[in-house]
Amino acid sequence: MAVLIILVLLGAWEAVVRLGGVDELLLPAPTQVLEALWTDRDLLAPDLAVTTWEVVLGLAAAIAAGAGLGIAMHVSPAARRALRPLVIGSQAVPVPVIAPLVVLVLGFGLAPKVLLVALVCFFPVAINLYDGLRDADPDARKLLRSLDATRWQTLRMLELPSALPSAFTGMKIAAAVAVIGAVFAEWSGSSEGLGHALLTANGQLATARAFAATLLLFLLAIGLYGAFALLERRFAGWTPRSTTPGGP
């Protein structure tokens, strides 16, 4: 069904460009985008590798930071009061505005890209994990308290496993938006990566190649999301969600 919808949309797009006489510098047809993807493959492949690496490292940092924050906010009321405004406020910071500043401080290397991806991604991880930790079954909570379980045992035996599905939701959201952070970081100072490829293609009026780079970003986001969905099925396969048909 999804394939059908995409084919219809692509067909309509192709028809509009071919029949409507839209300038291919403004909007290339899907076939022209695919053609650019193929002819410029040697140009785009290294960029894809660079951006993928930035995004994967940034996501790893976001998951580590998000998990740490989520658990700290859950376990310690003092940490919750201190951190929550900062965590929420961090998402109001416009990435295109701070990206050049980060690049100015951290230079043109990998570090600013990883940092910006992490900044975009840690929030859904932290908040979903935090909510998941609080939503543990109250009956099971009572049970563990009646067994004199320690705070750490309650966290390890009840809260963390029960927060896993929610944490995976956070990670899937993070995976889907991670490329945005990487692209803005590359725009602010980079000589490689898909964001950089987008800029140069635009500068050279190679619109088809810009679309090809966008297509790769699109596929990268879907691939990362799919990877987390697979991990979820593997590690949180007990949830009702993963046993009902439908899937992603």
Binding site: D137, D139, A140, K142, L143, S146, M157, L158, P161, S162, L164, A236, W238, T239
Partner: peptide, 11 residues
Amino acid sequence: LMPQRDGLLPW
């Protein structure tokens, strides 16, 4: 304690 809704851990 045996809580009202069994309190079994689904995982």
